[in-house]
Amino acid sequence: MSISKTKTSFYRRLYVAYLIEQGVASVPGIMSFTGMPRRTAQDTIKSLAELDIHCQFVQEEGARNRTGHYAIVDWGAINKQWIADNLSEIKSTLDYP
């Protein structure tokens, strides 16, 4: 059975938001954890706003460059418990370990 691009895109966004919430909260961390390319990780974080998931970058205190992490400030209409309850299906759909 073929999985639509819409579904995989939606699941990817949910999964990245979930990872950020769980502490895998940087682009390199997401890349390492999932194996996704840098650009995909960056674009996915940027696109969380389209689902009304408010994600912001938190710069480390005293850092002169863009050292820091992302944080989910508001999940909007998304039920994060549903993501946790369906994590194995999400990962399987995305072909992530």
Rank of each mutant, 00 (worst) to 15 (best):
M1A: 10
S2I: 13
I3E: 10
S4I: 12
S4W: 08
K5F: 09
T6W: 07
T8P: 06
T8A: 02
T8N: 04
S9E: 05
F10S: 12
R12D: 04
R12L: 13
R13Q: 15
L14P: 00
Y15E: 06
Y15F: 15
Y15C: 09
V16M: 03
V16C: 01
I20V: 15
E21T: 04
Q22I: 01
S26A: 02
S26K: 03
V27D: 04
P28W: 00
G29W: 06
G29N: 00
I30Q: 00
I30H: 06
I30K: 02
S32N: 15
F33C: 01
F33L: 00
G35Y: 06
M36C: 11
M36H: 06
P37I: 04
P37S: 14
R38D: 11
T40N: 08
T40E: 11
D43T: 07
D43Y: 10
T44Y: 10
T44E: 03
I45H: 04
K46N: 10
K46I: 05
S47W: 02
S47N: 14
S47Q: 15
L48Y: 03
L48H: 05
E50S: 15
E50Y: 10
L51Y: 10
D52H: 10
I53W: 03
I53C: 01
I53L: 08
I53R: 03
I53G: 11
H54D: 13
H54Q: 13
H54T: 14
C55Q: 06
C55R: 00
C55N: 04
Q56W: 01
F57P: 02
F57A: 09
V58G: 07
V58P: 03
E60N: 14
E60V: 13
E60W: 07
G62K: 10
A63H: 09
R64I: 11
R64C: 01
N65H: 08
Y70S: 00
Y70A: 03
A71F: 02
V73E: 14
V73D: 01
A77N: 07
N79Q: 09
L87R: 03
S88L: 13
E89S: 15
I90S: 10
I90L: 14
K91L: 06
K91Y: 11
S92R: 15
T93P: 00
L94F: 11
D95E: 14
D95R: 13
Y96R: 14
P97F: 02
